[in-house]
Design a protein around this nucleic acid. Sequence first.
DNA 1: AGCTTTAGCTAATGATATTAGCTTTATGTT
DNA 2: AACATAAAGCTAATATCATTAGCTAAAGCT
Lengths: 221, 221
Amino acid sequence: MTGGQAITSRAGSGGPPRPDRRARRRQETIAEILDIARDVMTAEGVNGLSLAEVARRLGVQPPSLYKYFPSLMAVYDALFAQGQRDVVATMTTAMADADPGLEALIAGLEACGRWSLANRAVAELLFWRPVPNFRPSPESFAASIEMVRLQRGALADAVAVGQLGPGALEEDAVFLVSALIAGVLTQAIANEPELPWGEGRFSPMFPRLMRLLPAAFPLPD
Amino acid sequence: MTGGQAITSRAGSGGPPRPDRRARRRQETIAEILDIARDVMTAEGVNGLSLAEVARRLGVQPPSLYKYFPSLMAVYDALFAQGQRDVVATMTTAMADADPGLEALIAGLEACGRWSLANRAVAELLFWRPVPNFRPSPESFAASIEMVRLQRGALADAVAVGQLGPGALEEDAVFLVSALIAGVLTQAIANEPELPWGEGRFSPMFPRLMRLLPAAFPLPD
DNA sequence: AGCTTTAGCTAATGATATTAGCTTTATGTT
DNA sequence: AACATAAAGCTAATATCATTAGCTAAAGCT
């Protein structure tokens, strides 16, 4: 859990039903902490995140943050979960707006790439494992699995439409695809962290790599 | 520099001319520190490296390490430089043993992959940029450039032999190739850090990706 | 209006990197 | 063999972290 207790709201009283104002303010503070944490990571690197710096920017003493998160790792955890939800939502939208099959797959992966370069600190947290002793919480795996599911669906569509051969239905097809996007992203983030998607030496390789998919999963004769 | 002063050796005395035993022991200690640092990084993650832990394992008080390295960053720097020399040497050997062209390119990249999974902590340091405030020293760029040169040479050979089309001579061909290997490595290191090259879901994708190169750089009709 | 929760604080602990300054010891020189 | 010295080690001290304990005051629920 992100840090919230159960929210108790009194049942149908008459007036404006502000159900627990405290809980709302608490959520606002939590969101503010996470925003600041993201900023710090972006400026100082994923491992440069420190509760002391967050407290400083929030205008509060460091121990006060423990009212909201039980540890620094819990902050990482929340950022991880939030980032993963965000990137999955972004991919889902992009894929829904494209023709099912190869186009949707490419649109989804490109959206993932664009998001990652726009949120590179969180992307590092998601796709690399840069923080010692940090293991994403089990619920985070759900989002991971959802990303795989999305890609598998698009690959299956592409086979159904005749864009890719039956090899794209195999278990491991999605690993090949994810290695392609991971390669572009890793190189871009590590070597050109300032540049957005579409600029620099690496992210422009993405369309070329996608055009290789039919060769990777050839149609039967 | 790694930390060594100029070595003074007395000129031609008769006996076994061990010139400056002190310098030798110093180099041994430096090597030992770097070995331990590698172990710590492998166990605790790249950012889990601490001089305190190194000192503990070396059986020495932390400040003593400053006789050998001016800072923790300098240790990272030495590990970076050493790792880069190592991986370039490994690639060079592997490529020299293979037929020039596509085979040499694949052999070199595979050697790089194998080395990276066998030295994943240093590989993270080399290929990602996980340590805040750590910028590799300028001399390290030399090795980087050498890796690019090796790959460009093999691509050119492959074109000369007729294995790849002229597109492989372009500036950016090497970035496409390095995105391929980086993708496999990043996924393997992040998701299956225990497994060696050849096992798991990602590194076995490598040969399939390499077989796509002729499609990426097609021969002219 | 009163009680309780909550959000904040200060103080303290233990880990870290790093600096300063002292002591010992190994090593090269006489 | 004795000695001078530079290297290698140490302890002590500072400053920055994360984290815990315990206190205080305000906010808001009832």
